[in-house]
């Protein structure tokens, strides 16, 4: 892996951009924007994968690039936009936690992610992808935070997808991709998962006349 040193800063920058996109997601208050930012983040992920393909000599990753572009950049955002367009009257995000506070929390999560990476994981000496790893943990945590703090079903889906982006980022860089069959399977699962969630979102909208998941609270105790 002698050609790594040149690539690492680039990958780091891309990762930082993904983190930035996540921060924008936390901030933004309109659903459509949220979906667009997600698509952009996925695009960054695709570029990361592309660079990793060539610099890390893991050529099977090229398939991942196509998959990510096809699914995460195009297909899933389209599905989400479709749902937003047809189903939602209020196009706001409807947060439990205000955007400004959310940004503070998200920053805290980033610090937590770095703390985890530095003091708990304690990677091998000479590991170059520490930044990417920390970023992916941060993405996972922020995505999770989005799910916790936003009421709409769609925002929960986006949060989940952000978490997945985080996992993919670390898989791309740290391990230069999982074995081929696993990668394919995971992508397939993610796609099917989103489709199924889409189906349920439609059903929920039909039955509850709302996409607000905080209203799904009849099953208690």
């Amino acid at each position: 892996m002698e050609n790594l040193t040149g690539v690492v800063p680039t990958l780091d920058k891309l990762a930082t951009c993904m983190l930035g996109a996540a921060m924008i997601m936390v901030m933004c208050s309109r659903l459509v924007t949220l979906v667009y930012v997600y698509a952009f983040q996925s695009l960054l992920l695709a570029i990361t994968a592309l660079i990793a393909t060539f610099s890390l000599n893991s050529h099977h990753l090229i398939w991942m690039v196509f998959l990510i572009v096809a699914l995460k950049v195009v297909a899933i955002p389209l599905v989400l936009l479709e749902i937003t367009a047809t189903l939602t009257i209020k196009k706001e995000v409807e947060p439990y936690v205000e955007p400004r506070v959310s940004v503070l929390v998200a920053s805290g999560l980033v610090i937590l992610a770095y703390y985890t990476e530095r003091y708990i994981l304690q990677l091998h000496k000479g590991e170059v992808f520490t930044h990417c790893l920390a970023t992916s943990i941060a993405l996972i945590l922020i995505g999770f935070f989005l799910m916790i703090s936003r009421k709409k079903a769609i925002t929960q889906m986006v949060g989940l997808l952000t978490m997945e982006n985080g996992v993919f980022l670390s898989a791309m860089t740290l391990t230069s991709g999982m074995p081929m069959i696993v990668e394919l399977g995971i992508s397939f699962d993610v796609l099917v998962g989103i489709l199924i969630m889409g189906v349920f979102v439609f059903r929920i909208r039909e039955t509850f006349a709302s996409l607000d998941t905080s209203k799904l609270n009849s099953l208690r105790g």
Partner: peptide, 29 residues
């Protein structure tokens, strides 16, 4: 396809998928 069934299914789907995403990260690590 009743209200409660949908609610349960959604919670099941979301909570378990979140969990399983963590598991994926664990697998990657």
């Amino acid at each position: 396809n009743e209200k409660t069934a949908l609610e349960a299914a959604w919670k099941y789907l979301i909570l378990c998928t979140v969990g399983i995403t963590f598991a994926l990260f664990g697998t990657v690590l």
